[in-house]
Structures are given as C-alpha cells and as structure tokens.
Amino acid sequence: KLLSSIEQACDICRLKKLKCSKEKPKCAKCLKNNWECRYSPKTKRSPLTRAHLTEVESRLERLE
C-alpha cells in the first residue's frame, strides 16, 4: 500500500492505542462500548529543516 492511502484509526482508538477496525460511521470498538466515534483530519507533519537536523546532530555528539 502507498503511504498516502493508509487509513487512520478513529480518535479514541488512537488515543487509547487500540486496534481500530476503521469502519465508518462507527468502528467496532466504539460501537461495542457506545463511545462517540470521530475521525479527525490527518495532520500534516512539517518537513525537517536543516537547522533542526544540525541541532539534533550536535546534541547527539555531546551525549556520545
């Protein structure tokens, strides 16, 4: 599967780190437990900047 097509777990399953069936409108866990089942939009991760990478590398060197 391509990364862009990976389905996201519902908010509660993601928060509780449960295996989500990803069914809509309610996944199996939410249906069974009568929880409100919501699927928040995916958040875009910002790409690493060179400055951040350099900072992490220098912190790693100090720890070694």
Rank of each mutant, 00 (worst) to 15 (best):
D11Y: 06
P47A: 06
S58I: 15
K1R: 11
K32E: 08
K32H: 09
N33R: 12
K16M: 02
L48N: 01
L15P: 01
I12N: 09
C13L: 06
R14F: 01
S4R: 07
V56P: 02
R62C: 09
S40T: 09
C30H: 04
L2M: 15
C30I: 07
N33C: 11
T43M: 13
R38N: 15
A51Y: 08
P47F: 00
E36N: 14
V56H: 07
E61S: 11
D11N: 04
S40I: 05
C20E: 06
K22Q: 08
A9W: 02
C30E: 05
C37R: 04
S5A: 11
K1D: 06
K42E: 05
S5N: 10
W35C: 06
R50Q: 05
K29I: 06
C13N: 02
P25Q: 08
Y39R: 05
L63S: 03
S5G: 11
K22S: 04
K16S: 00
L18H: 13
S4A: 12
K29V: 04
R59T: 04
K16W: 05
L48I: 07
E36A: 13
H52Q: 07
K42I: 08
N34L: 13
P41I: 03
E23F: 07
S40D: 02
T54D: 09
Q8V: 05
C10A: 05
S58T: 11
S46M: 05
E64L: 09
L15R: 07
R59I: 03
L63M: 13
R45S: 01
A28T: 12
K1F: 14
E64F: 02
V56I: 05
I12K: 10
C30Q: 01
C37M: 04
I6R: 05
C37H: 03
T43V: 12
V56M: 07
P41V: 07
I12E: 12
C30S: 00
S5V: 11
C37W: 02
L18G: 15
C13D: 00
K42M: 10
P41Q: 06
N33K: 10
C27S: 08
P47Y: 06
L18E: 00
A9S: 04
L18F: 00
R45T: 05
L60D: 02
C37A: 07
S21W: 02
T43W: 02
K16H: 02
P47S: 03
L53R: 10
V56Y: 09
V56T: 08
R59W: 01
L53D: 03
K16E: 02
T54L: 07
E64H: 10
L60C: 14
R59G: 04
C37D: 08
R45L: 03
Y39P: 00
K29W: 00
S5I: 11
K24Q: 14
A9N: 03
K44C: 09
E57Y: 07
S40M: 04
T49K: 00
E57I: 00
Q8K: 08
D11C: 02
R38C: 15
A9Y: 01
L48T: 06
E57T: 03
S46Q: 02
E36R: 12
K22C: 00
E7T: 10
H52E: 08
N34P: 02
K32S: 09
C20N: 01
S40N: 03
Y39F: 09
T54W: 08
I6P: 12
C30G: 07
A9V: 08
K16V: 00
T49L: 04
E23K: 10
C20F: 07
R14A: 07
E55M: 14
L48C: 03
E23P: 05
E36I: 08
E7N: 11
K42R: 13
V56K: 02
N33V: 04
C13Y: 07
L53K: 02
E7H: 09
K32D: 05
C13S: 00
R62G: 05
T43D: 08
R62Y: 04
N33I: 00
K19T: 07
H52S: 07
L60P: 03
E36F: 09
L48F: 06
R45E: 08
L2W: 13
K17V: 04
R50N: 01
L60R: 00
L63A: 03
R62M: 13
N34A: 12
E61D: 13
E36V: 13
S46G: 01
K1N: 14
I6A: 12
T49I: 05
C20W: 02
L63C: 10
R14G: 01
E57A: 02
N33L: 10
K17D: 03
H52L: 04
D11T: 01
R59K: 10
R14D: 03
A51M: 10
K1M: 15
K22F: 05
P25C: 02
R50G: 02
S21I: 01
P25H: 01
N33F: 09
L60S: 07
K26T: 10
P41E: 08
S40G: 08
N33P: 02
L31Q: 13
D11L: 06
I12G: 12
E55S: 14
R45A: 03
P41C: 05
C27M: 02
Y39L: 06
C30P: 02
A28K: 14
L31C: 12
E23H: 14
T49N: 01
L15G: 14
K29E: 00
H52K: 06
P47K: 05
A28D: 09
K1S: 14
V56R: 02
C30L: 00
S46C: 01
I12A: 11
K22V: 07
K26Y: 12
R38W: 11
L3A: 14
L18P: 08
